[in-house]
Computed example of a mutant assay.
Amino acid sequence: MIRHKWLKRSSLAVTALLLAWPISWAAPARDVSAAAAAPAPCGSGDHGLLQSLQKQHSGADQNPLHFTDIQFLSGSTGRAAGTGFLIGTSDAGCHWQEIYQGQWQFEQLDFSDNVNGWAIATMPSQQTPYLIKTTDGGSHWKSVYTGNMRFGRMQMLDKNTGYGYTGNAAYRTDNGGNSWVKVPTPANTRYTTFNNTKTGYVLTVIPGGGYKVMKTADGGHSWSTKLTVKTSVTVGGELYSKDNQIWAVLYGEAGMSQVSYSLYGSTDQGSHWKRVIGQDTAGGGPSPGGWTPVVKDGPAQPGGHPGNMQLIGKETAFLAGGSPAGEVVSVGVTYNGGKTWKNVKPTVSGYDGRISFVDGKTGWLVVTSATKSSIYSTKDGGATWSRKFAFPEALEP
């Protein structure tokens, strides 16, 4: 299955540092130094953070530090994670603090509140994913018991209840990861997501060709088909759901740094759908499905790869996109459930992007390329971006 992949960078294991971070995140730290009485200007460089880790990753034979995920709980409070580090802000990115520096190579973050968080992470020079959690805002992490399951993705509803997903199965915990119960899912399941412990959706492949999106309203005990898409190629896809919205990214093939895919959206829990994007590419061939799409291509051309989605309210949805060939990152957005779709003209260089939006206008973006990694913010739905954090090589012309 072709999915959004983040660069996995090897680094030497270093001792985790307990850093001065306000766990409540109620306000920006004001007692870090004597100079804090006169706050520094809102910056956009590396803010002097992670200096020892940056030195370890400097040099021609080393891989520079990279961001892999970002999550904002509000317009002011958020975290960004990467290869052996986690940083955070409580003033909308003007200032950042080190939260964690150590062995965990973060791949996915999911904080249910300011204190309790979960992550999928690997160890240096290893590919095995671990589920880890924190109860102090991210300063310290410990492995979560998962038995013989290796979760490639997780989704937490609150500090105790959440889901862990393998390639074709789903498991739920109701006690903070102390035990897991397998959730019944249909045959040939390739992706699962839940809104709550009752309502969930799965993406299945049809033997011989095609995709189905199916819904449960009883925690997985029964499933009903909500969308069927005919296609000769069933590579896989992703689902995003929240309240009444459900979106399906369905992949065709890939080649020449290009990806063919379709984006289907529903604002009534799958009763009615629109094929919003139908991106055909020379390298990947036709996109799945036969309905006329609202737009031909997704964000970040040429041949852009879809990133993650963010769903806001009843009808707003954002999709990140990156183009290795074009070396640009951008977003697409709908404010009416897919009736119309706008791809924002790329203004950020890179080839991978991951977004976190808190409303229909305010959002954040981590960008990765071979040598550059930065954090950007927008206040106009992605039309313009302002850099808030950058490792030194990203500041070079």
Rank of each mutant, 00 (worst) to 15 (best):
L65N: 10
A170N: 10
V14F: 00
T68I: 05
W385I: 13
T225K: 02
Q310M: 04
A29M: 07
G304N: 04
L395F: 03
A187D: 11
R3A: 07
L395Y: 06
N116V: 13
G360R: 12
Y100K: 08
G208R: 02
V229H: 00
E393C: 00
G45L: 06
S374D: 11
G147N: 02
V358S: 01
K212C: 05
L319I: 15
W247T: 14
G43F: 05
N175S: 08
P392M: 08
V294Q: 11
D31Q: 12
F111K: 00
V144Y: 04
T83N: 13
N308E: 10
G152Q: 11
P286W: 04
V367H: 01
E393V: 13
G332K: 06
V235R: 07
A119F: 03
E396G: 09
K388A: 00
S330T: 14
Y201C: 01
M214Y: 00
G326C: 12
A13Y: 07
L365T: 14
G137S: 03
G200C: 04
M156L: 11
V344I: 06
L239K: 09
P64M: 02
L227A: 08
V202L: 04
F85G: 14
A394G: 04
D218P: 00
W6M: 07
V202Y: 01
M214H: 05
G322Q: 09
M156F: 09
P286N: 10
I23S: 09
V295F: 02
R9E: 10
S112R: 12
K345H: 07
S10P: 12
N343H: 00
W364G: 08
K212S: 10
P28M: 01
G353E: 09
N336W: 04
T192F: 15
A217T: 15
A390K: 03
N63P: 07
F67P: 02
W6P: 02
G255S: 12
R354V: 06
F391H: 10
G209F: 06
W341H: 06
Y261W: 15
